[in-house]
Simulated scan of single mutants.
Amino acid sequence: MNNNEEHIEQEEHWVSVSDLMAGLMMVFLLIAIVFMVNAERERNKVRDVAVLYDRLRTQLYQDLLTEFAPDLEQWGAEINPDLSIRFGRPELIFDRGANKLKTGFEDILQDFFPRYLGIITSVKYRDDIAEVRIEGHTSSGWLGQEEDSAYILNMGLSQERTRSTLDYLLLLPEVQQEKYWLKAHMTANGLSSSKPILSLGGEEDRERSRRVEFRLRTDAESRIAAILESYQ
């Protein structure tokens, strides 16, 4: 083989390698484009769910406020944009250290809960409610106990109070037609003193910390989580 033939053979070899590299670059480029398009679609899905969730929460908050605004002051209650309803006058709810509902709070619940249930199980919201949480909260103290023991004792007390509340609600005649839905969606959660209410000075407001809250969780979180899992 002379030098010219060898030179031509080497050129053909390098041309074939160059073609191969160019082809691989095109493949990688196409993969990158497909990935970016899919990622953009997923981001749009997350954005759309977030927008729908925000609209749902805003509308539900307004409907709850419209329904209960005239009653909140006498109940010692407040409705918050995070869809929590707080009953914060402990003298109306439980005696100190007790888990039995006071008659006054039973009367409030008998008025409040059927109306509340009517809103959240309406066609507008029913399929978007993932959980109805009854939360029991206490202050951080327990007479004669150090901090850790007080926390544990208050945890038991808060759980007993939420169970008492749940038991009373499930027996209300006005909610019997929705009992199956309630048992699938409603939970009782004792939180002890883990979420105290603070005064303007940053100190715990022990009276307001002793409270019962109703809190709604929509299924937007699970929808977003399912989309994010598709990235993995």
Results as ranks from 00 to 15, higher is better:
139 S>G: 08
59 Q>L: 13
42 E>H: 15
162 T>L: 01
86 R>P: 01
86 R>C: 09
136 G>F: 01
117 L>E: 01
48 D>G: 08
191 L>W: 03
217 R>K: 15
6 E>G: 08
96 R>K: 12
183 K>P: 00
185 H>T: 07
19 D>M: 10
120 I>M: 05
143 L>Q: 08
39 A>S: 14
117 L>T: 02
104 G>W: 02
56 L>R: 12
39 A>R: 14
103 T>Q: 13
159 Q>Y: 04
64 L>C: 09
101 L>Q: 02
98 A>E: 13
37 V>C: 14
187 T>I: 12
44 N>D: 15
38 N>F: 15
177 Q>H: 14
36 M>E: 14
118 G>N: 15
129 I>P: 00
204 E>Q: 08
101 L>Y: 01
210 R>F: 02
157 L>K: 00
192 S>C: 04
168 Y>M: 06
29 L>R: 15
204 E>G: 04
193 S>K: 00
36 M>F: 15
156 G>E: 07
197 I>W: 03
189 N>M: 06
221 E>M: 06
156 G>L: 03
116 Y>R: 03
123 V>G: 08
137 H>A: 03
114 P>I: 12
197 I>R: 05
198 L>G: 05
150 A>K: 01
132 V>G: 00
225 A>D: 14
214 F>S: 03
34 V>I: 15
190 G>Y: 00
185 H>W: 05
213 E>K: 07
80 N>E: 13
11 E>P: 03
151 Y>G: 06
48 D>N: 13
151 Y>N: 09
104 G>A: 11
91 E>V: 06
28 F>S: 12
2 N>S: 08
141 G>R: 06
190 G>S: 03
199 S>C: 05
10 Q>G: 07
138 T>D: 04
88 G>A: 11
97 G>F: 08
2 N>R: 04
17 V>K: 15
223 R>F: 07
13 H>S: 07
198 L>E: 05
71 D>S: 15
4 N>M: 11
156 G>F: 02
56 L>I: 14
99 N>H: 09
47 R>C: 14
67 E>R: 11
199 S>V: 01
107 D>K: 14
121 T>C: 10
211 R>L: 07
102 K>G: 01
147 E>G: 06
69 A>G: 11
223 R>A: 07
120 I>F: 06
116 Y>V: 03
113 F>H: 04
191 L>Q: 06
140 S>F: 03
58 T>S: 13
114 P>K: 07
30 L>N: 11
147 E>R: 11
